[in-house]
């Protein structure tokens, strides 16, 4: 790794001041599970690394009303949290399915989102659960829907002086019917060939609202709005699920790689959206 100047702010304010001072030259590091790899490969070569490991105040979960997760909470804490398991079981399950225990012990919620790798697991589930993310800078705070965060491969809308501070997931009015499924033809800890999260609000056998999103299907996580529109207001049936899934190949944009050709992945995106809908409502 190329040498850098390592700083240890102890408050969010100090961290934001350092990011403001050094701008493009600085990168914040939480657990470092992604950033260390990028730095070793010299894809990212910051002069200043702002370690968040000693920053107080971003490491708690609260579930009074909405679920609020501090950006420095690690994946393992989310998957094990009794509040998350009770109120947002799909979120606990999704964080459980990221990489391995070793990585989940260290990788943080905010760090994972800022890394913006479209193959990651949490984003699709967070879109399906209508999550928002809060970013702070020395100039103030802004909150945005999670799907607005991602701009491209490893690219977010955050400016160099901004830091993700919190993730908020609204509490559903009634339990949602949910599923997160990954197509993993190689190994269980591999990135998915395609992955789908669905969250359906169902009353009297009819879909009141639907939110569907895909990972590993393009340069960002992708929300399947056309599929949602097909479902909304309809009674649940295999026919409606098929019609919803049929809209998906047109909105995904996967790359051909060793996990499959772009055409194959587009077809599998349709198949996995249908299966996710079936699993959620089974």
């Amino acid at each position: 790794m190329i040498p850098f100047d390592l700083r240890f702010p102890t408050t969010v304010q100090e961290a934001l001041e350092l990011l403001d001072q050094y701008g493009e030259e600085a990168r914040p590091m939480a657990g470092g599970t992604a950033l260390v790899l990028l730095m070793q490969q010299r894809l990212v070569t910051p002069q200043v690394v702002v370690s968040l490991s000693r920053v107080d105040g971003l490491s708690s979960i609260s579930a009074n009303g909405s679920l609020r997760i501090g950006a420095l909470v690690n994946h393992r804490v989310v998957e094990e949290s009794p509040e998350v398991k009770a109120g947002w079981p799909l979120l606990a399950e999704t964080y459980h399915r990221v990489a391995t225990v070793r990585i989940r012990n260290v990788a943080t919620v905010g760090g994972g989102l800022a890394h913006a790798d479209p193959n990651q697991d949490p984003p699709a589930t967070l879109i399906a659960l209508n999550a928002t993310v809060t970013a702070a800078s020395s100039g103030g705070k802004r909150e945005m829907p999670i799907e607005d965060l991602f701009k491209g491969y490893y690219e977010t809308c955050l400016t160099p002086d901004e830091l993700i501070t919190e993730l908020t997931v609204p509490r559903p009015v009634r339990p949602l019917k949910t599923a997160y499924i990954k197509f993993l033809p190689r190994t269980a800890d591999d990135y998915a060939t395609v992955a789908v999260a669905v969250a359906l609000d169902v009353a009297d056998g009819r879909c009141v609202d639907a939110r569907i999103a895909l990972n590993a299907a393009g340069s960002t996580p992708i929300r399947a709005r056309d599929a949602e529109n097909v479902l909304r207001g309809q009674p649940l049936s295999d026919e409606v699920f098929r019609a919803a899934a049929a809209t998906v190949p047109a909105i995904v944009d996967p790359v051909s790689d060793h996990r499959g050709s772009a055409n194959y992945k587009s077809r599998m995106a349709e198949v996995f959206v249908r299966r996710a809908l079936e699993k959620a409502t089974a």
């Binding site: 240890f8 657990g31 470092g32 260390v36 012990n105 260290v106």
Partner: peptide, 10 residues
């Protein structure tokens, strides 16, 4: 943890 991707200072 994986020590191959963790800074000593952490």
């Amino acid at each position: 943890v994986s020590t191959c991707i963790m800074l000593t200072a952490h």
